[in-house]
Design a protein around this nucleic acid. Structure first.
Lengths: 198, 198
DNA sequence: TTCTGTGGAGAACGGTCGTTCTCGCCTCGT
DNA sequence: ACGAGGCGAGAACGACCGTTCTCCACAGAA
């Protein structure tokens, strides 16, 4: 007898908890937000929190997985139009819009890795997989543009550096600089005009 | 062992504490290392720790200031020979050597910012000032090479991105990719031969 | 109604945090 | 020799952590 007796609104409550946890962890850091704060902000009693999630760490993991999906959706929507070169550059425009949001506090994966990476291997692995997924997607885009894999690695480094620089400096200038650098690198790696078939 | 059998004076003990704290905080994160662990690893009693430093946060601040000086010294020693272009690229070679150290765990300033930036304003300011100092130094080197300020911003983003990418991926490949990208960006910004006697 | 059981509010628990205090010991001035 | 004072070892303190438990109001079945 498998005890699948979850109440009908458990899914909605779970979603609300993860939404609240995402906001709190992103704003203040994971270790700075206790379970009681999460209870107060989400309105979900502790008892139910621990029925819906086995532990705080699993909440952190699910928050990061949610951010992973959201990030992928953002990237896909940013690159859905234009030629291969324009689609690559659109990623940096997306970064600029993100950096300009007033609640921007850097990349949650990078922040969580610095905070928990050395003590929580599962968190570290989620972060590593997230970053590798982005690099793989970049490599696909670069390949469609006819560029070498090394260009994808360079563009990924630019995106990472823009995120940390923008978070620490508190401005979105890094997105503009990263975009210009990306233009230069793409042009150097794809010397022929992108519209001309071979 | 030493000629002086007198008890080490406060300055020497302070230095040993900061050295131990640097290693522990860098390896495990600041919040993961308690004062009792610092006492055990440094061999300095709690009472003396609190006579030498007013609080844990001040230890963190002084560790970061020490890292700031060490970083500046590393940069200066890396760029002390060669022409302007070679000196700029030497920074990425220095990064590669750093990434290959087996205790490399990313940039402590970025890690500390993610961990404490939103709750400890003084830490956030130290991190911000550190990163700005590096960008200013890069701008000087770029200016000596005859390049525009935007090139310095681009090279700084490459360095930041290489650090986070290497930390998360666990490899030093990012340094190589960043160096190649830097070569391309420098060449594009300084189209003429860099050798410039005056 | 009465019984039963579920869920919410919050106390409790064991542990750890940063920080301070106690106390015995050791040194040292007189 | 003797009292004073500074030191180290570690307990103590209050606060907070993640997690579990108690207690009671109340919903539905008989």
């Amino acid at each position: 007898m498998t005890g699948e007796n979850q109440r009908p609104d458990d899914d909605a409550v779970r979603a609300k908890v993860l939404e609240t946890a995402d906001r709190l962890y992103y704003t203040y850091g994971v270790q700075a937000v206790g379970m009681d704060t999460l209870r107060a902000e989400s309105g979900v009693p502790l008892k139910r929190l621990y029925r819906l999630f086995p532990s705080k760490e699993s909440i952190v993991e699910q928050v990061l997985m949610g951010r992973h999906e959201a990030w992928n959706a953002l990237v896909e929507s940013a690159i859905e139009t234009g030629d291969a070169r324009q689609r690559l550059l659109a990623i940096y425009d997306m970064l600029a819009r993100w950096f300009d949001q007033d609640d921007f506090r850097g990349c949650m994966f990078i922040n969580s890795f610095g905070e928990l990476g050395s003590t929580a291997p599962r968190i570290a692995e989620i972060v590593r997989a997230h970053k590798e997924g982005f690099q793989v997607r970049l490599a696909e885009l670069v390949a469609e543009a006819g560029g070498p894999p090394s260009l994808a690695a360079q563009l990924a480094i630019l995106a990472e550096g823009a995120q940390t620089t923008a978070a620490i400096a508190g401005t979105s200038d890094a997105a503009t600089h990263a975009r210009r650098a990306a233009e230069t690198l793409i042009t150097a790696a794809l010397p022929q005009t992108p519209a001309s078939p071979r």
